[in-house]
Design a protein around this nucleic acid. Structure first.
Ligand SMILES: Nc1ncnc2c1ncn2[C@@H]1O[C@H](COP(=O)(O)OP(=O)(O)OP(=O)(O)O)[C@@H](O)[C@H]1O
Length: 772
DNA sequence: ATGGGCATGCTTTTT
DNA sequence: GCATGCCCAT
């Protein structure tokens, strides 16, 4: 039978999806059911059996790593594949944009700005605005603007949309931001999705070209596409739409960045006549693991019901680790990781430790290091976000795109070369006066008013260097340019002279960057009209930390739950399964049930990464912002049937409850030291266990403590009731008036209108509100 | 121009 | 609690 080898390892519904002919198709299925495998095999099938040329297939994945793996596997099946367009939305459309950027008023060599660059632009804009704008935070502004862009709202839309007055002011900043990016010949991440749609509208012939080119479009992790991405795909698909999307609404975990689950839920309406394939057999996890994950996610409303089954049997129970604090938790995780590696005969690379926030990684990392276990941490401070790396990249961006003044500003005096703020402002004045980018006046620094002879000379020297490197970059490899850049800026020397441990680390990173450039240069086979350096910059701008993740070193992996999506490990630890952490407390934001549901899905994603064993750990107290936070087990743990779980209570946790008890006693009786009784009452495993946190916040420290000998704290005591119209003071937001009081899920939430004009929904228990 | 000292904000997740 | 960023003194 033809195509036999492609279909061999597929079950009947998978085959149905792989061999589906023309027209739209949705593969909607739970975790580990082989969706990604379907997509890969389908690409191979289209080429081998349907006569589709590789260059006519567009496959969109969530990460570059997933794209690489898919490419590799397809190549294995069809023996070719370099012509395939497989990549992330961002990298594919960055490429498409590069070709026709001129039609949008950008140059082909445009720079891609990351969030940090975007914030710099906003900071610059704020400098030119009156005092009343200065309280706005660049970070939040950038986030807000990004959301608007993803929702396809222009500054005009925001202004006329009848939003609150604050937003209308911010629309001005938004408009300036867009102008600034254009002046810098730069695009941010959102532009990479929005601008192609703009291009297609402006130049229908370009759209037509790509429509004809991409006869088949396939999308993985469809539940995490946003509105702009959906729109783009909609434009590109013909009629009938040869569009195959694959996803799981239960794994939608990027709502906070604009992803729309509705894209997948409404697919059948949007593409009438779409074939829907459901996969129900899970090949990854044992039964208990699936049941644990299901028990939590089943509580979500508005999901497409689905039940996975497995041939693997129940397998091991999930192990719930109750710990005293985050240090204890880390020790427990290490101990059990050792044990499971031993019991199941695993390599360290087959174990993953997951957490909700990057901040949790530090304690875990240290515990593993102490115990001689090598770990690799994904995320947190990313390689291409380190200062020394960003500096060098900024030079390269200027070489490729001289209009990029944001990058030029960044490095014009790094390492220091005597071009101080005064010089800079004069140069800038000259440039602005001429309506040119800063770079253009570097060569004539001696013409600028008030710039000394010596300094002007240095500026012109810098200009010469840029020009030389620009010249060289047309033919030389990226590696050669980087090396020459480092030599001429004396970047390494300037670091070595510092002679600190920190500088040592930075030097190593620079070496690492040179290696990366070399590796790329060897791989670079030449693209029409694109230099090696340009191609390398484009790639590095869109790289994610997870893309580096390789299975070669035998290291245990530490990463966030988000980064774990799409991966699988024999043993998985989901840590910090506590109230306020998973689900995370969002006391400072608008509350809605959607957020809680997304937390459930995050838990679901984490648990379903496990093949054989899953551990769920929680700590009774945890240090956060330097405050001690009493949290208690996550509500998710309560949803798991007892028979699926094995409970382990750490030694310190047993002793710790006594400690806590003693501390409370000491507090309420005004005595220090430990209690006398060696046997403290045990706290209930489930149920509230909170108190005011200590630390630098007087409001919290003033919380009353329970006085009786029973341990169960009285939740009413430290939660004074609030009334509408009452005046309160918040540590950060200042004073305001209570607008509304609601109680939901056992929490009291108040809406406060602060005198500064902002309204916030707050949970008084966390928000440290004081009465005025 | 550097470096120490202080203040601030941050911890939700990232292409 | 930590990291960054700003200010001022040198
Ligand atoms: N028909 C099959 N027979 C045996 N194993 C399979 C089959 N289909 C998939 N698998 C295996 O099941 C595991 C999960 O597959 P895959 O990653 O494609 O699932 P997925 O649906 O994309 O998962 P998730 O949504 O959780 O990322 C992989 O190890 C894969 O090799």
């Amino acid at each position: 039978m033809i195509g036999q080898d492609i279909l061999t390892d597929l079950n009947p519904p998978q085959r149905e999806a792989v061999t589906h002919g023309e027209g739209p198709m949705l593969v909607l299925a739970g975790a580990g059911s082989g969706k990604t495998r379907v997509l890969t095999c389908r690409v191979a099938w289209l080429v081998r059996e349907m006569g589709v040329r590789p260059s006519e297939i567009l496959a969109l994945t969530f990460t570059n790593k997933a794209a690489g793996e898919m490419k590799e596997r397809v190549q294995g099946l069809i023996g070719q594949g370099s012509a395939l367009w497989i990549g992330t939305f961002h990298s594919i459309f960055a490429r498409i944009l590069r070709r026709d950027a001129e039609l949008l008023g950008f140059d082909r060599n445009y720079t891609i700005y990351d969030t940090d660059d975007g914030e710099r632009v906003i900071k610059n804009i704020l400098k030119e605005l009156p005092e009343s704008f200065q309280a706005l935070k660049p970070r939040q502004l950038r986030h807000k603007i990004s959301r608007w862009k993803n929702d396809l709202r222009t500054p005009e839309d925001v202004r006329s949309g009848g939003g609150n007055p604050a937003d209308i002011r911010i629309a001005d900043i938004y408009e300036r931001y867009e102008r600034a990016l254009r002046a810098n010949n730069a695009m941010d991440f959102d532009d990479l999705i929005i601008r192609p749609a703009e291009l297609f509208r402006k130049a229908p012939e370009v759209l037509e070209r790509y429509r004809r080119k991409f006869r088949h479009i396939l999308i993985d992790e469809f539940q995490d596409t946003n509105r702009a991405q959906y729109n783009l795909v909609r434009m590109l698909t013909g009629d009938p739409a040869n569009l195959c999307v694959v996803g799981d609404d239960d794994q939608s975990i990027y709502g906070w960045r604009g992803a729309e689950v509705r894209n997948i839920l409404d697919f059948e309406e949007q593409y009438p006549g779409a074939r829907v394939v459901r996969l129900e057999q899970n090949y990854r996890s044992s039964g208990n693991i699936l049941d644990v994950a299901d028990a939590v996610v089943v509580r979500n409303s508005g999901r497409k019901p689905k039940k996975l089954w497995t041939e693997k049997g129940h397998g091991d129970k999930a192990v719930v680790l109750q710990c005293a604090n985050e240090l204890d938790e880390a020790d427990q995780v290490v101990t059990h990781a050792r044990r499971v590696v031993d019991e199941l005969g695993l390599a360290w690379r087959e174990v993953a430790v997951l957490y909700r926030t990057n901040a949790q990684s530090r304690v875990l990392e240290e515990a593993f290091n102490r115990n001689g276990v090598r770990v690799v941490i994904i995320g947190g401070l990313r390689f291409y976000e380190r200062k020394e790396i960003k500096d060098l990249m900024a030079y390269l961006k200027v070489i490729v795109n001289p209009s990029d003044s944001t990058s030029l500003f960044r490095i014009i005096n790094v390492p220091t070369r005597g071009i101080g703020p005064a010089t800079l402002s004069r140069l800038n004045q000259l440039a602005v006066g001429r309506g040119e980018p800063l770079y253009h006046v570097l060569g004539e620094a001696d013409q600028a008013e008030g710039v000394g002879h010596k300094v002007a000379g240095r500026v012109m020297e810098l200009h010469t260097m840029f020009e030389d490197l620009r010249q060289a970059s047309r033919s030389a490899s990226a590696a050669a340019v980087v090396q020459e850049l480092i030599r001429r800026t004396r970047y390494q020397e300037s670091l070595s002279e510092l002679d600190t441990i920190e500088a040592q680390g930075r030097l190593e990173n620079i070496q690492e960057l040179v290696n990366a450039a070399e590796e790329f240069s060897e791989r670079f086979s030449g693209e029409e009209g694109v230099s090696c350096l340009e191609a390398w910059l484009a790639e590095t701008s869109l790289i994610a930390e997870i893309d580096f993740h390789r299975a070669d070193a035998d290291c245990l992996t530490l990463m966030t739950l988000h980064n774990a999506k799409g991966l699988e490990f024999p043993a998985v630890f989901v840590t910090g399964v506590e109230e306020n952490l998973l689900p995370i407390s969002r006391a400072w934001e608008e509350d809605n049930d959607d957020a809680l549901e997304e937390e459930r899905r995050l838990f679901y994603v984490g648990v379903t990464r496990a093949k054989e064993r899953v551990y769920l750990s929680w700590a009774a107290t945890r240090r956060r912002y330097g405050d001690l936070l009493d949290s208690g087990p996550s509500m998710f743990l309560r949803d798991i049937p007892a028979e699926l779980v094995e409970n382990v209570v750490s030694m310190r946790s047993q002793a710790g409850s006594f400690d806590t008890y003693a501390r409370r006693q000491a507090k309420s009786f005004g005595r220090g030291g430990r209690g006398v009784s060696p046997i403290g009452p045990q706290p209930p495993l489930f149920g509230p266990s909170r108190s005011g946190s200590g630390g630098r916040h007087p409001a919290a420290a003033a919380a009353p403590t329970p006085s009786g000998p029973t341990f169960v704290p009285d939740p009413g005591v430290d939660e004074p009731s609030y009334r509408k119209g009452e005046r309160v003071v918040h540590g950060r937001f200042g004073s305001g008036t209570i607008q509304d009081v609601i109680s939901s899920m056992g929490d009291i939430r108040v809406t406060v209108r602060f005198d500064s004009g902002f309204s916030k929904k707050l949970v008084p228990r966390f928000a440290r509100l004081l009465r005025e």
